[in-house]
Write a protein that binds this DNA or RNA. Structure first.
Length: 112
DNA sequence: TGCATGACCTGAG
DNA sequence: GCTCAGGCCATGC
């Protein structure tokens, strides 16, 4: 059972569609702990310790800002990854973030 | 054991 | 509309 808050974050992030991005708050809220949005960041910070790869580059803050780029191997890696998916990133700011935003609640269709 | 910090969000002034 | 403060849980010294 993936009762672990961290593990749940990883699962949700892994299910983020290609070319889409989500926010820490959305994940936290989806997990039922909107106030614990900080933990989402911590979870992703440890994502490197996980065996399974976690597309943390698709997770941004509420403003669509690449706040966690520092946690990556290279600060530009996150930008490269996003651009590689067709997402425009300017000054660590995702363009059309509102449009590319993907809410985890849509997973309810696949979950049960 | 206790204080401080961290990839944040929400509410109130 | 913008700014300040509070809150959440976990990790580090």
């Amino acid at each position: 059972m993936d009762a672990d808050f961290f593990h749940q974050v990883y699962q949700v992030v892994r299910k983020v569609p290609y070319g889409r991005v989500t926010s820490y708050g959305a994940i936290a809220k989806y997990l039922g702990s909107a106030k614990s949005s900080r933990m989402v960041g911590w979870a992703l910070n440890k994502c490197s310790t996980q065996k399974e790869y976690v597309p943390a580059h698709r997770v941004l803050n509420r403003n669509g800002l690449l706040t966690g780029k520092k946690a990556f191997q290279g600060e530009k890696v996150m930008k490269e990854l996003l651009e590689s998916e067709g997402i425009s990133v300017i000054d660590d700011q995702v363009q059309d973030f509102k449009r590319l935003f993907w809410d985890p609640s849509e997973l309810d269709n696949y979950f049960e």
